[in-house]
Amino acid sequence: MTPTTPLLWQTATLERVVPQTARVSSFFFRLSQPFRHVAGQHVDVRLTAPDGYVAQRGYSIGSGPESEPGVIELCIEELEGGEVSPFFHEVAKPGDEIELRGPLGGHFIWTEPMGGPVLLIAGGSGVVPLMAMARHRAALGSQVPMALLYSARVWDELIFREELLQLHGARNGFDLVLTLTRDAEKREGARGRRIDSAMVMEAIDQFPEPPKLVYLCGSNAFVAAASDAVIAAGIAETAIRTERYGG
């Protein structure tokens, strides 16, 4: 961090849009001023109306630092009646330019030297910055034990599902525990209730020692409930870092 240099706004070009679920798509932006981010960081995006009015929102960077030089992946959920997220889903087209600045955030981040074991807990689109951490670990071939406990409403709302199942299947110290709170069907390997302390203990079952770092991300209500579950599972409060998306 260089304390005196302002983080300047830059233009970024939307290269491609990849649907993840019915309401969530990945938006890949090519940066005009490439930067290297740390897993967990976000950018601020700014949209300007013809009359000069500006709307600004934060979006986590889903790509890992190693993913694709000069390109970042934002993964945006369309919120009905929202000002910014529907713009990305309904208006933005490849080739469009938007303004953003980053990388931002110096607390909700994970680097390999910070060590582990690392427990990641995501609710819905809160998986985005945690995906960057999982991708970073995979790209490094890191041995740090990592587990992701991921809660969504239904199977088809699991963002990055296939990639996460693959990471899990590689059996190299990355564990995925899924839970679906509203799925009528029974899904192989997925739990069917809200996150509780028993589920947290199950997620860290493979760890050789208690998690050193716990990252929680999602809506405010989700983060509040999940941190209660983590504390009830006997994990030190001081290990927990949170990112709240609002709502």
């Binding site: 709307a55 208006v91 933005a92 330019e97």
Partner: peptide, 9 residues
């Protein structure tokens, strides 16, 4: 820089 197609609430 105006953003194409953005008008805001």
């Amino acid at each position: 820089m105006a953003t194409r197609g953005f008008f805001g609430k």
